[in-house]
């Protein structure tokens, strides 16, 4: 064993990308499982609500156009959430395998940021997969080149917010409560995010409109509608972006605080 230190490339940035590389390799090994895990729920939502209900005449064909942007938004946010929350609980409490990364030469909070960035990448891949899935299930999907910039911005923010919420839950909820957490938090998030209905149409149900305005996923769904289906009434894009940025700031701060609390005693 040589004592001579290898001329190591130092720098937190290098360590950050090495850890990101680790996550990509680990996920790449199980790509089919990953796609099934994140794709199955939106696929069925699209199939039942967008295809079956419209074919049977319980919903009009336009409903599919309204639903599709919401489902892409939901996929981005929930995949982000699921890619941080449970893995963090497992890595901190059971396998402890995150420890080797916490001992890498970079500030500990950057390891938390990496978790978020990687979860957001997974979420983006999953939401992009929804476009061919949508074409396959619905026959056609709403598409507008002019909305591309907004679509990319909203999806990236939505994926990051999902990841930040997951980081918060995964580090602040006690490990033995994580199952209850999923039941109590995931289901309300799933149905109050304006994925299956546009927010302005809730004006007759004021109380519910107020509740949905507090779910960050609402701004992802509405932003997606602004980008893909501007003819459907939606929240103004700038309000969506502000809402998304504020949500991201809140949950990323909370999540990183929780991460530091778990990482350093």
């Amino acid at each position: 064993m040589s004592l001579v230190r290898s001329p190591a490339r130092s720098g937190a940035g290098h360590a950050f990308f090495a850890i990101l590389g680790r996550d990509i390799v680990a996920t790449g090994r199980e790509l089919p499982i990953f796609l099934a895990q994140v794709g199955l729920q939106p696929l069925f939502l699209l199939f039942i609500f967008g295809k079956i209900l419209t074919t049977l005449g319980y919903a009009t064909g336009d409903y599919a156009k309204l639903l599709f942007p919401g489902i892409v938004a939901l996929t981005a946010a929930l995949t982000g959430l699921q890619s941080t929350a449970l893995p963090l609980v497992v890595e901190f409490s059971w396998t402890k395998e995150i420890e080797d990364r916490l001992l890498a030469p970079l500030p500990t909070w950057l390891v938390g940021v990496e978790k978020m960035v990687f979860a957001a990448l997974r979420a983006l891949v999953a939401s992009l997969v929804m476009f061919p899935v949508g074409i396959g299930v619905l026959g056609s999907i709403p598409w507008r080149l002019g909305g591309l910039g907004l679509l990319v911005a909203v999806l990236i923010l939505g994926a990051l917010i999902g990841a930040a919420i997951g980081l918060t839950l995964g580090t602040l909820v006690p490990p033995n409560r994580i199952q209850i957490m999923f039941a109590l938090i995931l289901t309300p998030l799933l149905f109050t995010g304006c994925n299956q209905y546009p927010w302005p149409s809730l004006s007759h149900l004021r109380w519910f409109q107020v509740i949905t305005a507090m779910n960050p996923i609402t701004y992802v769904s509405e932003g997606m509608r602004a980008a893909l289906t501007p003819f459907i009434p939606h929240i103004a894009p700038w309000i969506c972006l502000v809402g998304l940025l504020v949500s991201l700031a809140v949950f990323a701060s909370l999540g990183l605080w929780g991460f530091l609390r778990r990482a350093i005693d």
Partner: peptide, 18 residues
């Protein structure tokens, strides 16, 4: 998630070993 060899190699990458 990694093999034994990958455990060693990624550790080295985290620490910037060329």
């Amino acid at each position: 998630s990694l093999t034994i060899r990958q455990n060693l190699l990624f550790h080295a990458r985290y620490h910037g070993v060329p």
